[in-house]
């Protein structure tokens, strides 16, 4: 088993580094210092951390105002509250206003498994992906998290970074360069393409290894930028493999699977399977338990790929 990392550590480190290089960078939190791992940032830049308390609407509005005053705010809070509670502020104050604010949704997806559906954030991609002007990124490992933070700091405009606390291995080689809006092909294979995002990328890679025992060569594509989506990569995946499985730790309504399907059906229709939380509130359980429960595991992805290929063969 390779070493596992909490991407929040890379996030916090990258943010401190970016803040050292750019005095305009500030942080806005909703009593989320510890859960965002920003104690180091506060120690290094006490004046540049604004805690608005438990008040998400105000948090996002304050960030928009700081941006109006020339700052580059990184807003960091638990993704379920940041996105749902402040969605109108995200739409109007940030996206419509093209405010230079970077939203960092922590502990997204099923990371708060045991705390129950109030704390699960399995709709955040659907909500943010629907909003014009908003760039949506889901890093898959610490290296990509670091680079995504630096890209968000460097580029103007509103961003949503969806960051998990679930342990992940490094899936990219050390020389990987994150490119905004570009998928990364982690594995080539012409039988089926597995397109995954965030914490599911490592599991997709494991599924591809399992599939070799079935005689199946699966491509694995990390779709880190959900919006703007890398349409060319999706079309290429459809063209090369003729079958696509998407995997996300998110509802199957309106997330990565929906985004990929929108491209596939309008450009190069091929059969697909969309893996995720199937339109229900998840039960209580550890994150690992819930991923198992919904088949969001290497074995579950393998099974879905085999079923898809079997169904295609029977057509």
């Amino acid at each position: 088993m390779s070493q596992l990392y909490d991407c929040r550590d890379a996030f916090a480190q990258a943010l401190e580094e970016a803040a050292r290089n750019d005095p305009r960078i500030v942080v806005v939190i909703n009593d989320s210092l510890g859960s965002s791992k920003l104690k180091g940032f506060k120690a290094a830049f006490p004046q540049r951390l604004v805690n608005v308390g438990i008040a998400e609407q105000n948090m996002v509005g304050v960030a928009a105002g700081l941006a109006n005053g020339g700052k580059i705010p990184f807003v960091s809070g638990a993704s379920p509250f940041l996105t749902a509670r402040a969605l109108e502020q995200i739409k109007v104050d940030l996206a419509y206003s093209r405010a230079n604010v970077k939203l960092c949704g922590m502990s997204s997806g099923l990371a708060y498994g045991e705390l129950g559906p109030t704390h699960h954030s399995i709709e955040d991609l659907a909500w943010t992906r629907a909003i014009a002007n908003l760039t949506v990124i889901v890093p898959a490992d610490p290296l990509e998290t670091t680079q995504a933070v630096h890209e968000a700091a460097r580029l103007s405009g509103p961003f949503f970074l969806r960051i998990s606390r679930m342990p992940v291995p490094q899936v990219h080689p050390a020389d990987y360069r994150f490119r905004l809006g570009k998928a990364s092909w982690l594995r080539q294979g012409s039988d089926v393409a597995i397109i995954a995002t965030g914490v599911m990328v490592a599991r997709a890679l494991e599924a591809a290894v399992l599939l070799t025992n079935d005689g199946i060569e699966a491509a694995v594509i990390n779709m880190a930028t959900i919006r703007p989506l890398d349409r060319e990569a999706v079309i290429e995946a459809a063209r090369r493999s003729g079958a696509i499985v998407t995997v996300e730790e998110h509802t199957v309504y309106g997330g990565l699977g929906g985004a990929v399907a929108e491209v596939v059906v309008t450009t190069y229709p091929v059969p697909m399977r969309i893996l995720g939380v199937p339109g229900v509130f998840a039960p209580t359980g550890s994150p690992e338990y819930l991923l198992e429960h919904f088949g969001l595991t290497p074995a579950g992805i393998r099974a879905a790929a085999l079923e898809l290929l079997r169904a295609r063969a029977e057509q």
Binding site: G61, G65, L66, G69, G70
Partner: peptide, 15 residues
């Protein structure tokens, strides 16, 4: 929406 944005702007000036 205006007052939260105003608070952020005032904070920026303060900083």
């Amino acid at each position: 929406h205006g007052l939260p944005i105003g608070v952020g702007a005032a904070l920026a000036a303060r900083l």
